[in-house]
C-alpha cells in the first residue's frame, strides 16, 4: 500500500508526482517527448519499458500497456526470455541488450554492444534510446519507492507530454 496520498482522480503514480506540480509537469514533458517526437519506433520503446519493469519486478509499471505501440501479446509473453525467442528483430535485440543491463548491470555493457546499438540506430538514435531506458528505469524506481499500487490501464496511445501519467 502506498504511503503517499496524492491528488484525487488521477492514476496512483500521477497522483504521487502531482504532490510537486511543477516537477510533475516537467517530468511529463520530458517523458512524453521521448514518445511524441517519433525519435524511435513506439514498439521498440514499449518493449524496453516492459523489460525494464520486469527486471525491477515493478507491478505498477507492468500494469500499464500502450496498446497502440505495436507490441503483440506473443512478444510480451516471450519478453522475459527474449534471448531465446525468435519473435524479436535484430534491432529489437540490440535495444533489449541495453534494457537488460541498465537497471542492475550498467557497468557490464560492453563497447561492442554499444557499437552494435550505434550501427542500428545511429548516434542520435542511441542517445535517445539510452535516455529512454534510463527514464523507464527511473519510473520503476520512483513507483517502487512511492509504493505505488498497480492500476491496470490500457492506454491506447503511448505516453505523451500532453496527457496523464499512468
Amino acid at each position: 500500500m502506498t504511503w503517499l496520498k496524492g491528488a484525487e482522480g488521477r492514476a496512483p503514480f500521477d497522483a504521487a508526482l502531482g504532490l510537486r506540480p511543477e516537477l510533475r509537469e516537467l517530468y511529463a514533458a520530458f517523458y512524453g517527448k521521448l514518445w511524441d517526437d517519433d525519435l524511435l519506433p513506439a514498439s521498440l520503446l514499449e518493449l524496453c519499458r516492459l523489460r525494464v519493469a520486469q527486471l525491477h519486478d515493478c507491478e505498477s509499471e507492468l500494469a500499464v500497456r500502450h496498446t497502440e505501440a505495436g507490441v503483440s501479446d506473443e512478444q510480451v509473453a516471450a519478453l522475459a526470455d527474449w534471448p531465446g525467442s525468435d519473435l524479436f528483430s535484430e534491432q529489437e535485440r540490440a535495444a533489449l541488450t541495453l534494457a537488460e543491463k541498465m537497471p542492475w548491470q550498467h557497468h557490464d555493457l560492453t563497447d561492442e554492444e554499444y557499437a552494435e546499438l550505434n550501427g542500428h540506430f545511429g548516434e542520435s538514435g542511441v542517445v535517445a534510446l539510452t535516455i529512454g531506458v534510463a527514464l523507464f528505469d527511473a519510473n520503476c524506481r520512483l513507483r517502487l519507492a512511492f509504493g505505488t499500487e498497480p492500476a491496470p490501464v490500457e492506454a491506447p496511445a503511448p505516453a505523451s507530454s500532453e496527457g496523464p501519467i499512468y
Binding site: E22, A29, F30, L34, D37, V127, A128, I131
Partner: peptide
C-alpha cells in the same frame, strides 16, 4: 552527448534545473 537530442536535452535541463 545529450546534445545529439536537443529536444530531450532541453526537457531534461528544465526538469533537472527546476529540481
Amino acid at each position: 552527448a545529450l546534445a545529439h537530442q536537443p529536444g530531450l536535452a532541453g526537457a531534461f535541463g528544465m526538469l533537472y534545473g527546476t529540481f
